[in-house]
């Protein structure tokens, strides 16, 4: 179950326009969508933004993956809807749900289409220190491995009759010990063994590492960036200079 959560945000290799964009371009895209989503609190502009975020998802042929990452957050969305309609009103609640959907969509459009190694490379070229970028890429590399390992440990202990639901609160906490200890032991062992392998491949030999790949912005990137900026400027104009009151502030007919 936990595994599906991870895999929803996981990169899937495909050959599409969006997949082939530079990670920096896509980072900029996510940033713009986030900013716009946070600027507005009414339904119509958020709906427009939502449709805009859908475009890269569609272009990336990743609708199925996007839907499954949304599904993972259904509970959260329902929660936000209920809370906000009590605290404020239904209009605001719907807007907030839309806003969250936009954020999730913007992030999935990034993570579903960006190879973690490319992300690391992009960060390095943006002057993030190598150690940090490398740690990040290792983390994404090993998340599925660790998730699967956790599952195996759970299976192994259940085969010995462990029942997590059994007993009162303290017992339930104690039930976790047979899972946590092997998890720690294995993570440490794995870390040692990875370190040993890195060390044997001259990791950290010199300060100034070179890189096989170098990311370069292409025409496709510039085109995409142009559209993004146009979109952003339009939204800003709508927000601050457009004499709205009319359709932009449209409310649910309650």
């Amino acid at each position: 179950m936990s595994y599906t959560m991870f895999s929803a945000f996981e990169f899937k290799r495909k050959d599409t326009y969006i997949h082939n964009l530079d990670p920096r371009t896509k980072m900029f895209m996510t940033l713009i969508f986030m900013t716009v989503a946070l600027l507005f609190t009414s339904i119509v502009p958020l709906l427009i933004t939502f449709i805009a975020t859908l475009i890269p998802v569609l272009l990336a042929k990743s609708v199925k993956e996007w839907l499954s990452s949304l599904k993972g957050t259904t509970m959260l969305l329902v929660f936000i809807l209920v809370i906000n309609s009590f605290v404020r009103d239904l209009n605001f609640a719907v807007a907030m749900v839309l806003r969250l959907i936009v954020l999730i969509t913007a992030f999935s459009a990034f993570f579903l289409t960006t190879h973690p190694d490319d992300l690391a490379q992009a960060l390095i070229q943006m002057k993030v220190p190598f150690d940090f970028a490398f740690a990040l890429s290792m983390a994404t590399r090993y998340v599925p491995t660790l998730a699967r390992e956790a599952q195996t440990i759970m299976d192994a202990q259940m085969s010995r009759g462990l029942e997590l639901q059994r007993g009162g609160l303290t017992q339930k906490i104690r039930n976790l010990i047979p899972l946590i200890i092997p998890l720690i032991v294995n993570s440490v062992r794995r870390a040692m063994s990875i370190a040993e392998s890195l060390e044997s491949r001259a990791f950290g030999a010199i300060k100034k590492r070179t890189y096989l790949y170098q990311l370069k912005l292409t025409k496709g990137d510039f085109l995409f960036l142009c559209f993004l900026i146009m979109y952003f400027v339009t939204m800003i104009y709508l927000k601050f200079y457009f004499p709205f009151t009319t359709w932009m502030e449209w409310k649910l007919p309650l």
Partner: peptide, 22 residues
Amino acid sequence: VSVAKLAKKVGLVFQNPDHQLF
């Protein structure tokens, strides 16, 4: 039936002992 119930009849030993020793 639950895994715990079946465990009395079917014993499953996993590949990596470190996945169960604690």
